[in-house]
Nucleic acid binder design. Structure first.
Lengths: 196, 196
DNA sequence: GGCCGCATGTAATCTGTTACATGATTCT
DNA sequence: AGAATCATGTAACAGATTACATGCGGCC
């Protein structure tokens, strides 16, 4: 059974904070508060964070151990299980399925992919690009079947097409910035070859 | 007190269905089911529709009268109050405040504006364009202050900029299609003047 | 003395979805 | 006979936000 998604589908992103080392909820919250990196796109309320983490623990993605802290309140340290690791990877590399999911979910995927490796980033970007091109093709045929008199309907299609095209251009930019393709003919390749 | 908004902010759009003549809830639902016009962008569940309408009645935007229908179940016919009319106009002509609200709320405003008059459409488009240009300016200065090393942060900004630019181009297209500006120098104007 | 930071949450509330109830009529 | 349409909703649940509780220690 591959990932039961909440409407937002973002809960699996939280597992990404536990990949490199175990942490406790409060620290994740602090990271998200900073106006940089993922905190730039995901404003997650504290109560909501705790409830999502509780659910991930129920699902078996997380295991917790309580660490007493002398005078401070004890920390509940969270750790990924094997299932958690698998679910995260599968979430990370699967493209989002609607244009509206770019703003939050895709940017979250990109954040962790980019932290992980250029290879993961490239995989994610490629798959998302393919998905986007499919939607775009659908939208264009849909736009053609709208009667010209239905000006509003046509504008709706064109809005979506415009947003998608912009997203596709941006995906290319991401690839260039984060994971330049290794085996293409171009300026970089030439330079590499000359050096060899 | 200017409009208490629900998170979606869309409930006032429902008032638009009552502008020209009173209707009952089921008919509104049928209109939204058709895969055209507003039904193209707003998938409103029946139960949700009834609850939103109930709230609008509580708020005093709507008054209802029950019409017995012989054999069929009686209709609860909904009518705009003066307050309802005012609230709708104010909702209709105010721009949305986030890029994410384009997909649903702005398209809903545009739908009713376009039904109402070219003048209303032009007002809405102008105001929205101004708002978008302001966001865009903010985003660009924000993008400039990001350190170049923070590649992810920069890409996030660029994503938003790209989507906004596409939206702005699309707003121009809307104006051309639905409400061509009256007093501009151009092909249309010339033709008009020759006729006079 | 009072507020902020640490670290855990719970409780209440609001929004929205899914599923179901009713009861007559018309379509297949 | 069984399904769909008309027209009203209610009930139960899931998701997310807001507010609050706890209790210690350090800073102004």
């Amino acid at each position: 059974m591959p990932l039961i998604k909440s409407p937002l589908g973002l809960e699996y992103a939280l597992l990404g904070f536990l990949r490199t080392q175990p942490t406790h909820a409060y620290e994740i919250h602090q990271m998200l508060l900073r106006a940089e990196a993922l905190g730039l796109v995901w404003r997650l309320k504290q109560a909501h964070l705790y409830s999502l983490l509780a659910r991930l623990e129920e699902e078996g993605c997380i295991e917790s151990t309580t660490q007493p802290q002398g005078t401070r309140p004890p920390r509940k340290v969270l750790e990924l299980t094997t299932k958690g690791r698998e679910d995260f990877q599968s979430w990370l590399l699967s493209p989002v399925e609607h244009g509206r999911d770019f703003r939050l979910e895709f940017l979250a995927k990109l954040y962790f992919a980019q932290e992980e490796s250029p290879a993961a980033t490239r995989t994610l970007l490629d798959r998302q690009r393919t998905a986007c091109r499919d939607w775009l093709a659908e939208l264009r045929t849909q736009a053609e079947t709208v009667e010209p008199a239905r000006r509003y309907d046509r504008l709706v299609c064109e809005f979506r097409i415009g947003q998608l095209e912009a997203a596709l251009l941006w995906l290319d930019e991401c690839e260039q910035t984060l994971a330049p393709p290794p085996g293409r003919i171009g300026a970089n390749r030439r330079r590499d070859e000359l050096r060899v």
